[in-house]
Design a protein around this nucleic acid. Structure first.
Lengths: 329, 329
DNA sequence: GTGAAAGCGCTAACAG
DNA sequence: CTGTTAGCGCTTTCAC
């Protein structure tokens, strides 16, 4: 009698249609053989009565959640927000096309408890890591937990599946391009070398110097720069060292550098950035930036992770193309 | 023999400890009476052997996922990204404190299929809506689906649980403040009135005019402005109409307005914005902005939604305080 | 305070 | 091609 349940379930449909639960299940899920006629009947009934399978029950039976976790650092700089957001949207796009959903997994600088909980409670089938450190606790944890994961951004660990731009190559190209201008006095202002990406940037930069027959000592290199204040002082040091072309490690550094230049009325200085985001648009001084389609990162890494989860063949390293933008301010 | 399973489950622990599954369950979950001694033994065993309950099985048994969905429009303007991100981080913070996780629910302008899927498959216990339209398909759907939801931003539907700033009041205060300056020739450049928030802004603006003894016809009001191009032309119209003080509906409009002013070298124009985001920082012309703690939106709405899910008493409307920032550029 | 047993709703052998 | 039968791992009455 008084069924308290409002949702149609497989059993109900089986009874109504005079079929067994399993046949109905097969018709709905599309797995297993069902006669065309039966399938039609089931699907039609399901459609008319608004049947929707309970994903939790399905997950329990299949030991698969169809969720992926995306790790997002809670203390991202303002300038990094567009990166995570675009990336997230790309991941969602890939996931939703392949019938997965995306669970946010916030982590603090030294606190990966949420990640641990989500993984150990088996709320996700795999994890996407954004941004990699040289010492990478999240990655280490995921390895021991034996759960599929992919990193966005390069890792030094060759076993890890990663998707990234060929940062070193991009930086080498851009730097080389600038060095073609005779008599530039170049300075590089780079973020912390704890981040792999900054190591790659430095590598490309150095390679370009070598290719141009220059030494590291011919230019000013300031690394470990983070936070607005540090950028300003790094910028000043570079100028004092005689630089007239500032190469910035990322868009945040670049934006802060431009602020500094603007305040000091440095008219004849030029600037380029190893990473672009919309905050650099319409900024004075800026000549070139390396631009990548961040949404593409998300789509590629999402698909890769799902391939991994579904045991499809994958390659360890996927490169996302970059372009060098020439601004004309 | 050969158990393929690697994870410890309740059954295993029950056998090992010579207890029944239910006692172990009670000890782990903390629901139901268990002697202190037994609880201690179970907890200690669980801890040592790294037991973590399977949340899917638990969800199925309890008909509760401990997930909440957060709706994010895929086509958010660049300027809106910080809003969604900050908000998301706030929601995550509240959720994780209360043992919930956050599932991203992307929706397109006219495509709420992911929302429908996530809800009908029962992957979430409730949904958070960001941004409300006058015609609000997501909200309408959620109402018919009879699933708990909360909107961030105001809705015209009084039945809907909402958290918002008192936008009208904030705009009234700011406008009133500007009107104290004698002889300002004010113009308002506002976004589309399909968004409730813009209606509230207009309301506050109008109220301030009335309080100052002015008519709508004494000022220039341009509404429905969206996209960079439209802002520029709106800005030009306003100036042609003789305005010397531009009041912008949001930070995007404000940023574009400043660009326009800068290009046209309009030295003596002043600008204020009804919404602040970091993109306005350090911009010339800008005097005042209304600032809200967006993370607080996330925390408040997350907690509210969870209260709703857990049948705790809640209030329909929660106001998040705002402040008016005075820039000195 | 503890145990037995019946689910939660779906899937997946295994028979037929 | 379809039905039967066990689960998936945890929760929750209901007895004792």
């Amino acid at each position: 009698m008084a069924r308290e349940r409002h949702n149609l379930i497989l059993d109900d449909m089986a009874v109504e249609l005079g079929l067994s639960k399993s046949t109905v299940s097969r018709a709905i899920s599309g797995n297993g053989r069902v006669s065309d006629e039966t399938r039609r009947r089931v699907l039609e009934y399901a459609e008319r009565h608004g049947f929707s399978p309970n994903s939790i029950a399905s997950s329990l039976a299949r030991s698969q959640t169809n969720n992926i976790g995306i790790v997002i650092p809670t203390e991202a700089f303002y300038s990094e927000i567009p990166f995570f957001h675009e990336c997230l949207m790309g991941v969602c796009e890939a996931a939703s096309q392949r019938h997965y959903d995306v669970l946010i997994t916030p982590i603090g600088e030294d606190d990966i408890s949420v990640l641990k909980r989500i993984v150990s409670q088996r709320k996700v089938d795999g994890v996407l890591l954004t941004r990699s450190l040289v010492v990478d606790y999240p990655a280490d944890y995921l390895k021991t937990a034996r759960i599929p994961f992919v990193t966005i951004g390069s890792s030094i660990d060759p076993d890890i599946i990663q998707v990234d731009t060929d940062t070193a190559d991009a930086c080498k190209t851009l730097t080389g391009h600038i060095l073609e201008t005779k008599n530039v006095r170049l300075a590089l202002i780079l973020g912390p070398l704890e981040y792999i990406v900054n190591r790659n940037r430095l590598e490309g930069f150095t390679a370009a110097l070598a290719a141009a027959g220059l030494e590291r000592s011919d230019v000013t290199v300031i690394t470990g720069v983070s936070g607005g204040k540090n950028v300003r002082s790094a910028c000043r040091s570079a100028l004092e060292a005689g630089a007239d072309y500032l190469l910035c490690g990322d868009d945040f550094i670049c934006a802060k550098t431009v602020e500094e230049l603007r305040e000091d009325d440095c008219g004849n200085i030029r600037v380029s950035s190893f990473y672009n985001s919309d905050i650099l648009r319409n900024l004075p001084f800026v000549e070139h930036v390396i631009s990548v389609d961040v949404r593409a990162y998300g789509i590629a890494s999402g698909n890769l992770l799902i391939d991994l989860i579904e045991n499809k063949p994958i390659q360890k390293k996927t490169y996302i193309p970059h372009t060098i933008l020439h601004y004309s301010n």
